[in-house]
Design a protein around this nucleic acid. Structure first.
Lengths: 127, 127
DNA sequence: ATAAATGCAAACGCTTTGCGAGTGC
DNA sequence: GCACTCGCAAAGCGTTTGCATTTAT
């Protein structure tokens, strides 16, 4: 029996709650503080890093300088709003043949990809 | 007649030389130092920022925490090697219809996108 | 006693800004 | 004199690490 780890457990539960599709460290930290009363940023960081190492999480970079993390289950792409920074997920984008194209064009063996659309979210577009 | 600006000119010439398809600030800085004997990092930064503001350059983020810049001419995607970090360009990727898909799936108005493949470059793959 | 999780503080890497000095016009 | 570029130094910002403490086994 491992010793209890409230912070790591809290982080895990946030991902499992599916409240968001992706979490920044800051969001995880805030949420952990709410949930536990207090939690250290570095503890959250370490919990996330461990989960990433275990292959439970994927780290995504949408280009705003902040790392985001999400559950490894289904691969999908992202849209980020140029105006407010909101990030939504785009399900079901298949790029299987694009990878073959890349391989023949560059010689790189493609193991993964990340497609980031940017534009305006519905709220910002109407404003 | 504007007054001369050696650093900005050097930066501009680097992009025009097409020695690389994308430049990090560090690479631009090193190259500017070689070319001019000396140049300040912030001057390079400002030159690049200005060119970006003028629409001459696009800033790309491949997920390694460093900003890269490239000429705005032809839009293309990128492959980054997971092992050595090398970045190559993938010409001719068209994602026009994907943008329509995103719009109907998320409501976001897509204005641009960035697709980053990652994997192994030929050198790393053979090692 | 041992190993692990946490908190605290500081280091780090890269980007960005404030400001004063130099210099063509 | 003015406006602009540059260099220097420092601030920011997010991530990462070192270290000492606590605590369950």
């Amino acid at each position: 029996m491992p010793r209890p780890s409230p912070v790591a457990d809290a982080v895990r539960s946030m991902f499992e709650s599916r409240t968001r599709h992706s979490w920044s460290l800051q969001e995880l930290h805030e949420s952990a503080c709410q949930q536990l009363g207090n939690a250290d940023y570095s503890s959250v960081f370490r919990a996330v890093t461990a989960m990433e190492r275990e292959g439970l999480l994927a780290r995504i970079e949408v280009g705003d300088g902040k790392s985001r993390y999400e559950l490894m289950d289904s691969h999908h792409e992202h849209v980020r709003c140029d105006s407010c920074g909101r990030v939504a997920e785009v399900p079901g984008c298949s790029l299987a043949d694009a990878e073959a194209t890349v391989r023949s064009a560059t010689g790189f063996v493609v193991t993964s990809h990340q497609l980031i659309f940017s534009g305006l979210c519905p709220e910002c577009a109407s404003a």
